[in-house]
């Protein structure tokens, strides 16, 4: 268990120990109880240089089933844990490109299996690089650890389309974390990305628009303070800590980032990530959308 750093306590987070700083990571590179994992969108980044000792988890190959749109099962997860030498007593620190989208996504998948001794590196890969900290191309030896792995829990932090349908008829809250253009239906993908992936543009009825990037400081990718985040989610979006919240984006990676913010930085009691997201809802026959 990593100690809580004062910098994160001072920001007022509900679970300040879910974040670690670049300095903390630099001081724990040789700590055998800490496992560092890099998870990126760009497959070239990790092999071109990564934090010394860091393992790579690739979101397509390592976290998803190759034949069915779903996550790995407990047997596959056990193999993944074994490869990176993870056990429940060890702290796993995730970081990556794109302001930690895929790092948050990997952390969320780990949580599906009850693996919660996890942290995010505040600011992610870009902050580490901007501080000119050490990078290496040396890939750590494949480790080996034995774990008793829980069955995947698809209820607590994951939502499916039927959960979302039920949400439309209950007081639950939905947050759409995509760009405003995707939310209002003028684009089917975020700006600068190809306009494809769904047959319809718009958002799930009743969803509030809170783009994921509003939770971070654009200069260095670090998370905003709890006060700033409360203003964003509670005051602006009217989503409160005891609400039953479902977040979504296009395929579930950006919404993993917001899921982390709501669950761990603000302490919301029930937050689920709808990983089917717009690539499912925007193509689903018979469901309503709003523009």
């Amino acid at each position: 268990m990593s100690e809580t750093e004062s910098i994160f306590e001072s920001r007022g987070y509900a679970y300040a120990n879910k974040l670690v700083s670049t300095e903390w990571v630099a001081n724990n590179l040789n700590n055998p109880d800490v496992i560092i994992v890099e998870s990126n969108e760009d497959a070239l980044l990790y092999p071109s240089g990564h934090i010394p000792g860091a393992y790579e988890i690739d979101w397509t190959r390592d976290l998803n089933d190759p034949l069915q749109r779903d996550y790995l099962d407990s047997e596959q997860f056990e193999k993944l844990l074994s490869r990176i030498g993870a056990t429940p007593s060890k702290t796993i620190v995730f970081y990556g490109d794109k302001n930690n989208w895929w790092a948050a996504y990997a952390l969320w998948v780990f949580e599906l299996f009850g693996f919660t001794n996890t942290r995010l590196l505040d600011g992610g890969r870009i902050k580490w690089m901007k501080e000119a900290r050490e990078l290496t191309r040396h890939v750590p030896e494949i480790s080996s650890a034995s774990n008793s792995v829980n069955e995947r829990d698809d209820v607590t932090v994951r939502a499916f389309r039927n959960d979302v349908l039920n949400h439309l008829n209950t007081p639950g809250k939905l947050i759409d974390v995509r760009s405003p253009e995707e939310y209002n239906g003028t684009r089917l993908h975020m700006p600068d990305y190809p306009n494809e992936g769904a047959t319809r543009g718009g958002h799930i009825p009743g969803a509030k628009s809170v783009p994921w990037a509003r939770a971070i400081n654009p200069d260095d990718g670090t998370f905003k303070t709890a006060e700033e985040l409360k203003n964003l989610y509670q005051n602006e979006a009217q989503v409160n800590p005891n609400d039953d919240v479902i977040v979504y984006c296009r395929i579930g990676e950006r919404s993993s980032h917001t899921w982390f913010v709501l669950k761990y930085l603000l302490g919301y009691s029930k937050v689920r990530n709808y990983d089917g997201s717009w690539t499912e809802w925007g193509n689903l026959v018979g469901v309503p959308i709003e523009r």
Partner: peptide, 9 residues
């Protein structure tokens, strides 16, 4: 395996 965004750029 290129992502859509990276492909476009």
């Amino acid at each position: 395996e290129l992502s859509m965004g990276k492909n476009l750029g």
